[in-house]
């Protein structure tokens, strides 16, 4: 089956039931989205499908409707996404394992609410767990990204 990932068409030879995360990591070699819990309970595998955040570990390939965006697709070296820039300035990451998922949820939030309140941030980010408890820095980075884009 054919997917569009980060703007590139990709041919995937897999069963329709295969989770999108497996196809991305094991077949397409796109390693940004991480396997955490495998049951949509931690958020490490979050990607965007048609602009909406999805836990790719539980989304079967046969149900992917729209272009897929992973953390590799939102910016590139020298031209990072505002959220990535803010993450660096705030030094959010500790171990870093959950951070790709955190950033993708933050991107989805800012796409719809350019200047989110603390409550908006909590409602979106509650599904992305961080065992290093970087939550205060995540919140600060989202606010920094919002400010940097002129919201």
């Amino acid at each position: 089956m054919r997917l569009t990932v980060n703007g590139n068409p990709i041919e995937i030879d897999a069963e329709a039931e295969m989770p999108l995360l497996w196809a991305l990591r094991d077949l397409a070699g796109i390693k940004g989205p991480k396997f955490g819990c495998g049951i949509a309970a931690c958020g490490a595998c979050t990607v965007l499908v048609a602009g909406q955040p999805v836990r790719s570990c539980v989304l079967p390939l046969g149900q992917v409707e729209g272009d897929v965006t992973t953390i590799e697709g939102i910016g590139r070296p020298g031209a990072l996404h505002a959220v990535q820039e803010a993450w660096i300035v705030e030094q959010v990451a500790q171990c870093g394992y959950c951070q790709a998922g955190q950033i993708m949820s933050a991107v989805a939030l800012l796409d719809e609410i350019p200047n989110p309140s603390d409550a908006d941030i909590d409602r979106t980010m509650g599904g992305n767990l961080c065992r290093c408890a970087t939550y205060p820095k995540i919140r600060a980075a989202i606010k920094r990204a919002a400010a940097s884009t002129g919201a």
Binding site: I39, P53, P60, A106, R123, T124
Partner: peptide, 18 residues
């Protein structure tokens, strides 16, 4: 909510994983 909708986790079919 924006950034975490029901469909972020709940797809069109049950997850087969325990």
């Amino acid at each position: 909510n924006p950034g975490m909708t029901c469909r972020t986790c709940h797809q069109e079919t049950n997850s087969p994983v325990l």
